[in-house]
Amino acid sequence: MHLVYPAVLAVLLFSTGLYGVLARRNAILVLMSVELMLNAVNLNLVAFDVWLNRAARETLHSGQALTLFTIAIAAAEIGIGLAIVLAVHRNRGTSDIDRLRDTAEGHESDAPEAEKAEATA
């Protein structure tokens, strides 16, 4: 199989993920898009690993090893990310990224005092 197929597939996957990260409003969908991007990279890693191996320029399969690392880290990342989204959703009643603008310049929190206290606790 020619290297261009997995490469093109990876570009498509990465672009879809990038679009999702930049444009989706739901935090969970953003996280899923991040996973897409990571998997695009994984695909690249595996494909190039095979390609280089066939050319006998590299025989240690370091691309595949790195992919395993990426998968493990992605699993941890998605676990923490989903926990944060869950906590935000419980506190705010929403996980819409457009409405989570606490770091904006001149932002005055319109949340009631009690809610804020809960959030800090």
Binding site: L22, T103, A104, E105, G106, H107
Partner: peptide, 17 residues
């Protein structure tokens, strides 16, 4: 410069991209 701080994470990421 402060005007750029909209609070929307996606804007920041777009700028980064």
């Amino acid at each position: 410069v402060r005007r750029a701080q909209t609070g929307n994470v996606q804007t920041y990421v777009s700028a980064l991209l």
